[in-house]
Amino acid sequence: MFVDTVVEDKALHKPAFLFGLSIAVLAIFFTFNFTNTIFGEFLSPVIGNPEKSGFFGRLAVSFVLTILFVANLLLISFARLKIQILIVWIELFLLFLAFAYSFDLEIAYIFSGQPSKIGLMISKGLFTTIYISAVSILIATAIAIVGAIAKLSNNGFAYAIASFYTSLFRGLPLLLQIYLIYMGLPQLGFMIDAIPSGIAALSLCYGAYMTEIFRAGIQSIPKGQWEASRALGFPFGLILRKIILPQSIPLIIPPTGNQFIAMLKDSSLVSVLGIWEIMFLAKKLGAKDFNHLEMLLTAAMIYWLLTIILEMIQARIERKYQQKT
């Protein structure tokens, strides 16, 4: 994005804005009433028993929170950009932890058992999730290249088949596709295991989305590239392989990376087939002792960490391709 060369004063450094913001924040804290939380206990030397502190207590708690909040903003605003981003990230993460903490979880449960529950989720679940997603994205990419060429061709059959395919698989919920493939194919006489049918459903669904990404990528290459290759006597396949696709790839990679990240999370849907991936294990392990939230949160953290890693890899690949062209 273009960053303008004219710098405006930071709004936070204008007294009027700061005052207005403080009033608004105070109002919010007052409305949500934090008197009966840890903050109220913390202020009990001043306001006495939080439960009996009434209007004054509520106002005092809100006031202290407001001061903390606004001071925090003001301090961060003086830091350098990278530090700002880091601090805000950490603070938001701490808030998220506080949210999870409020569930009153039994953290030790996650590490209990032989082998430990988290160990099982990583050794078995994480492996299965990555395996299913990686195979599916490879198949989906192959489908997408063929689908994109078919959608750009003048062949009526090819276009009709490809557009019917994208329409159908983009039009049905993924969960429904998983059921249809797992339960439908045996009706035709194909006995198919859970993992292959899960992979088939994910590949077909994401292949349909990626067909559109590849089509747009190919179409965004200027017509002159085709004309120049044609004028040199290149046959169609050679133009596509050597001239058009290499130029489309830098355009295709960012949305394809997003698709991969989305697929990684959507692979949790194949848990309905009883595949031992992260989501299935989270539900299964937690259900035994009714400690659902512990295991679900563990699964959440594994998915999140995984997507963060993938985003970093994606950013690195993008940079590599940007340098080359």
Partner: peptide, 8 residues
């Protein structure tokens, strides 16, 4: 061509 159309 007018617009060169080299392969970038």
């Amino acid at each position: 061509f007018q617009s060169f159309n080299l392969f970038p």
